[in-house]
Structure formats: C-alpha cells, structure tokens
Design a protein around this nucleic acid. Structure first.
Length: 267
DNA sequence: AACATTTGACCTTA
DNA sequence: TAAGGTCAAATGTT
C-alpha cells in the first residue's frame, strides 16, 4: 500500500460512502424484518472492510518496528513507542480546543521547541479495557486570536457512546475535519440526520489549561464509528487509521474476531 | 478508594 | 545529540 496511498484513500472514501448509504437505507427500513437484517449485514460488511483496509495499511509498519518497540512486552522499557508518521493524522484547528465527543485521558505534556505553549498528549480512556488505540495531541498555536491545533492519530474502536443527545457544534471553528458517529444504537439515530456529521458533544473538560469544565468529571463521551466527509476542507491523510487492531463490528456491536486480514492491496 | 492529572525519566528517531 | 512521544510514580480530585 505504501506505493499507492492516494488510491487507498479513495477506496476508503468509497467504502465510507457505501456505508452511509447503507445506514440511510437501514433507517428507512424501520424494523422491516428480514430485509433490515440484510441491510445490517451490508453495513457490517462496509465497516469490516474499512477495518481490514486499515489493518493492512499498518501491519507492515508495525512489523518493521516490532523489534524496536517492546512496550507491551517489557514494561520496564519506559518511553518506548512508535514515533508517529506524519501522514497518519487528521488535524483540526479552532479557537478553543475542540470537543470531539470521545473520552480522552491525558498522559503527557511536552514543551515544544519554538512553541510558546506546551503540547498535550491524550489517549482514549478505553485504551486498555477495549484496546482502543486512538490518541490525539492538542497544542495552542496562536495567541490572538487564540488558536488550538488538535491532531488525531488512529481511530476509535471503543463502543462507549454514553450520551448522543449532545451534538457538537463545529460552526465556530475551522471545518478541517468532520466526523460521523453511528454505533447502531437506538439513541444514535438522531445523529444520522446530519449528512456529514455530527460529533457527540463533550460535557466534560479536556484538561485544566485548555478548556473550562462544563461538568464535574473529566471524561468525554464517545462513539465507535468514525467517518469523514468529502469536504475540500477536510484534511485526511492516506493512512489515518493507524494503530488499529483486528476489531470488527457485527450487527450486535463490537466484537474482537480471532483472525487477521488475509488480503493485500499491494499484490 | 478509585480514577485522573502532572511531571520527570526513558526511549526512539531524525 | 536534540527533539519529541510515552511511561509510570507521585499527586490531586471526587
């Protein structure tokens, strides 16, 4: 895949589009027995295909670094990690740190050379209980007007959509990335009226320096599926779904399946 | 007590 | 070797 990243993006985008259509069709079925089951399976197929694509994308890079990174084998090697590839990011800039609807746990902060403000590092709260590999970095990049840059790595595979009633309003920020969530839960139906998407709004603070708390705890709400629109403003990199593991969705929710992708787009 | 954040150490990469 | 990403003990919060 390394020799044709843009083609891979197109495939992913096409699959995303197909999945959206399947979702719309499923919604229109409205409990129509067997036919709805078929649509659900189509939807599941799109989702799993996207997962497979991602896993295939990253397996080679992971293989090459396996010998160097033994973080999960030998916990005594502190600081061992996979350095991020520049191409595997989604970026977003806004006047305030964006509230993306996911649950994040801050795990680090670094002073960055030639930057006035430190960079904050977050991982998904469900990194360990659901093996969700999503991370993000948040850094204030400008003073006046205040501008925060959020860079996302990986994709959420966790399933903890706890409050889909609160929708993220991105209208006041730069529309660099639009995210779509739909975990097939009944409550998620409200989100599907938004064509390009919707973020479940955060009700909790991100970190003390970045955002004013709006409630008493520190978690974000999250939802499991993530898609991107086709807006020219969207900044989608070829292999954004880094760090994914072999986790697939079925019509009942998220399940870990005991196999790994068997095809290779480079063939 | 459980969970989240802070922060210095550790490690990899350019 | 400097810069940056991650870990984990210490500390804070609920």
């Amino acid at each position: 895949m390394e020799n044709n990243g843009s083609s891979c993006v197109k495939v992913i985008e096409e699959l995303e589009r197909g999945r959206e259509y399947a979702k719309k069709l499923r919604d229109k079925m409205n409990g129509n027995g067997d036919e709805e089951e078929v649509v659900k399976k189509v939807l599941m197929s799109f989702t799993n295909s996207l997962m497979l694509l991602n896993n295939n994308n990253t397996s080679e890079a992971e293989d090459s670094q396996e010998s160097n990174c033994k973080t999960f084998i030998n916990k005594e090697r502190r600081g061992c990690y996979k350095r991020r590839r520049n191409s595997q990011t989604r970026e977003h800039e806004s006047e305030t740190p964006i509230e993306d609807g996911h649950q994040w746990r801050k795990y680090g902060q670094k002073v960055i050379l030639n930057s006035k403000y430190p960079r904050n590092y977050y991982r998904c709260t469900h990194k360990f209980d659901q093996n969700c590999q999503a991370t993000k970095q948040v850094q204030r990049v400008e003073d006046n007007p205040p501008l925060h840059k959020t860079t996302y790595y990986g994709i959420h595979t966790c399933t903890n959509l706890t409050n889909p009633d609160i929708i993220f309003d991105d209208s006041n920020s730069h529309p660099s990335v639009l995210l779509c969530f739909d975990n097939s839960l009944p409550t998620a139906a409200k989100l599907q009226d938004c064509p390009f998407l919707s973020l479940t709004k955060v009700v909790k603070k991100e970190c003390k320096e970045d955002i004013v708390p709006s409630s008493s705890s520190n978690d974000y709400i999250l939802s499991p599926e993530l898609t991107f629109d086709n807006s020219p403003c969207s900044k989608i990199h070829s292999d954004f779904m880094d760090d994914m593991s072999a986790v697939f969705y079925d019509s009942d929710g998220l399940h870990q399946l005991p196999f790994t992708p068997f095809f290779n787009f480079d063939d």
